[in-house]
C-alpha cells in the first residue's frame, strides 16, 4: 500500500488478491497478432497484462494477473483472444468490490 501519486498499474495490482488457476483461462492465437496493426489489447486491459515483445516479435500475456473484466475478448480485431472465466473458485477475489 502506498500513498504516493502516479502508482504504476503493477503497483496497484499488488493490492488485489488472486487465487491462481493452474490452467490458463486466456489463450491467444499468437500467429494472428503478428498481422495485427492496432494491438488494442495493450490499451484496453486495465491490468496491463498484455505486452508486446519487440525482440521475439510476439504478444506476451500474464493470465494470472487478470481482473476478469473480459474487455480483451470483446475488442480483439482478429478474434485471437479466447477469454473465459477461471475455473471453480479460482481467479480474482475482491474484498472491497
Amino acid at each position: 500500500m502506498s500513498g504516493k501519486n502516479n502508482m504504476t498499474v503493477d503497483e496497484k495490482m499488488a493490492t488485489v488478491k488472486i487465487k491462481i488457476d493452474k490452467e490458463a483461462h486466456i489463450t491467444v492465437k499468437k500467429e494472428f497478432c503478428k498481422k495485427c496493426t492496432t494491438r488494442t489489447c495493450l490499451i484496453i486491459c486495465t491490468a496491463e497484462n498484455y505486452k508486446w515483445d519487440e525482440e521475439r516479435v510476439e504478444l506476451i500475456f500474464n493470465y494470472e494477473g487478470c481482473l476478469e473484466c473480459g474487455a480483451c475478448r470483446l475488442i480483439c480485431p482478429e478474434g485471437a483472444i479466447d477469454w473465459s472465466y477461471p475455473k471453480q473458485g479460482c481467479g480474482v477475489k475482491f474484498r472491497f468490490g
Binding site: M1, S2, G3, K12, V16, C69, F94
Partner: peptide
C-alpha cells in the same frame, strides 16, 4: 480525474486499498 485539482483536494493522502475493474 484523480489529479484534477478539485478531486485531488478531496482524496489527498488516500492510500490505495484495492484496485478493481469490471464490465
Amino acid at each position: 480525474f484523480k489529479q484534477h485539482p478539485y478531486i485531488n483536494a478531496l482524496i489527498k493522502d488516500g492510500t490505495l486499498r484495492e484496485y478493481q475493474a469490471h464490465i
